[in-house]
Deep mutational scan, measured.
Amino acid sequence: QIFVKTLTGKTITLEVEPSDTIENVKAKIQDKEGIPPDQQRLIFAGKQLEDGRTLSDYNIQKESTLHLVL
């Protein structure tokens, strides 16, 4: 699982696999929060994550925290 922290300070927990794409993660966030993926920007280690890449591409491991910017 990974954590996604929103600007409001809320933390969302997501069940993911390293092979999941960023697009996939955004879809999971939409399921939980109702935020359309095209409004979501995910930041990890100061980098904006691209939809077509996977979590493992960015070396995002379990218990990692991503930041969600709208």
Score class of each variant (00 low, 15 high):
residue 30 Q to T: 11
residue 66 L to K: 01
residue 39 Q to T: 08
residue 44 F to S: 03
residue 32 K to P: 02
residue 38 D to F: 10
residue 49 L to F: 02
residue 22 I to E: 01
residue 28 K to S: 04
residue 2 I to C: 03
residue 21 T to V: 04
residue 55 L to M: 06
residue 1 Q to V: 13
residue 30 Q to A: 13
residue 3 F to A: 04
residue 33 E to T: 13
residue 30 Q to F: 15
residue 39 Q to P: 02
residue 17 E to W: 13
residue 58 Y to T: 02
residue 4 V to W: 01
residue 3 F to G: 02
residue 29 I to Y: 02
residue 46 G to M: 05
residue 16 V to G: 02
residue 8 T to Y: 12
residue 70 L to Y: 11
residue 65 T to G: 03
residue 26 K to M: 06
residue 61 Q to P: 14
residue 58 Y to Q: 04
residue 14 L to E: 00
residue 31 D to F: 10
residue 53 R to G: 07
residue 12 I to E: 01
residue 39 Q to D: 08
residue 53 R to T: 06
residue 14 L to Y: 02
residue 29 I to L: 07
residue 4 V to A: 02
residue 29 I to F: 03
residue 31 D to E: 15
residue 48 Q to D: 12
residue 63 E to P: 03
residue 12 I to R: 01
residue 15 E to H: 13
residue 68 L to M: 09
residue 19 S to P: 03
residue 51 D to T: 06
residue 42 L to N: 00
residue 45 A to I: 06
residue 7 L to W: 14
residue 9 G to I: 02
residue 5 K to E: 08
residue 5 K to H: 09
residue 11 T to H: 06
residue 26 K to P: 00
residue 13 T to M: 10
residue 61 Q to N: 10
residue 45 A to P: 01
residue 41 R to Y: 12
residue 16 V to S: 04
residue 39 Q to I: 11
residue 37 P to R: 14
residue 15 E to S: 14
residue 51 D to G: 06
residue 30 Q to W: 12
residue 69 V to R: 08
residue 9 G to K: 03
residue 29 I to R: 00
residue 14 L to Q: 00
residue 24 N to A: 15
residue 22 I to L: 05
residue 35 I to A: 04
residue 7 L to Y: 12
residue 3 F to Q: 05
residue 17 E to A: 11
residue 16 V to D: 00
residue 68 L to E: 01
residue 28 K to I: 06
residue 35 I to M: 05
residue 59 N to Y: 07
residue 38 D to S: 13
residue 39 Q to R: 12
residue 27 A to I: 14
residue 37 P to F: 14
residue 6 T to Q: 07
residue 57 D to K: 03
residue 1 Q to N: 11
residue 40 Q to T: 05
residue 24 N to Y: 11
residue 53 R to H: 12
residue 40 Q to H: 04
residue 66 L to T: 02
residue 45 A to S: 09
residue 51 D to E: 09
residue 43 I to M: 13
residue 30 Q to N: 09
residue 51 D to K: 04
residue 43 I to C: 15
residue 35 I to G: 03
residue 31 D to R: 11
residue 49 L to T: 03
residue 41 R to G: 07
residue 14 L to K: 00
residue 6 T to N: 06
residue 16 V to M: 08
residue 19 S to M: 09
residue 56 S to L: 13
residue 58 Y to G: 01
residue 33 E to D: 05
residue 46 G to N: 06
residue 24 N to Q: 14
residue 45 A to T: 05
residue 49 L to A: 02
residue 47 K to S: 08
residue 34 G to L: 05
residue 29 I to V: 06
residue 70 L to F: 10
residue 47 K to F: 12
residue 48 Q to V: 12
residue 36 P to N: 08
residue 5 K to R: 12
residue 69 V to I: 14
residue 7 L to F: 13
residue 60 I to C: 03
residue 6 T to S: 06
residue 64 S to K: 03
residue 47 K to L: 15
residue 20 D to V: 04
residue 36 P to F: 06
residue 31 D to A: 15
residue 69 V to C: 13
residue 21 T to Q: 04
residue 5 K to Y: 08
residue 69 V to S: 09
residue 37 P to S: 12
residue 54 T to Q: 07
residue 61 Q to K: 12
residue 35 I to V: 08
residue 22 I to D: 00
residue 12 I to M: 06
residue 49 L to G: 01
residue 15 E to M: 14
residue 30 Q to I: 02
residue 55 L to T: 03
residue 16 V to C: 10
residue 49 L to P: 01
residue 4 V to N: 01
residue 61 Q to M: 12
residue 9 G to L: 04
residue 37 P to I: 15
residue 18 P to Q: 09
residue 22 I to T: 04
residue 45 A to M: 14
residue 18 P to Y: 13
residue 38 D to L: 08
residue 17 E to G: 09
residue 39 Q to H: 09
residue 29 I to N: 00
residue 26 K to H: 02
residue 1 Q to L: 14
residue 25 V to K: 00
residue 30 Q to R: 15
residue 10 K to G: 08
residue 1 Q to D: 05
residue 28 K to T: 03
residue 4 V to M: 02
residue 55 L to E: 00
residue 46 G to S: 05
residue 4 V to K: 00
residue 52 G to T: 09
residue 53 R to C: 12
residue 31 D to L: 14
residue 52 G to E: 12
residue 18 P to H: 08
residue 68 L to R: 00
residue 49 L to Q: 00
residue 66 L to H: 02
residue 23 E to D: 08
residue 69 V to T: 08
residue 30 Q to K: 12
residue 59 N to R: 07
residue 8 T to K: 11
residue 2 I to M: 05
residue 28 K to H: 05
residue 49 L to Y: 01
residue 1 Q to C: 13
residue 59 N to M: 07
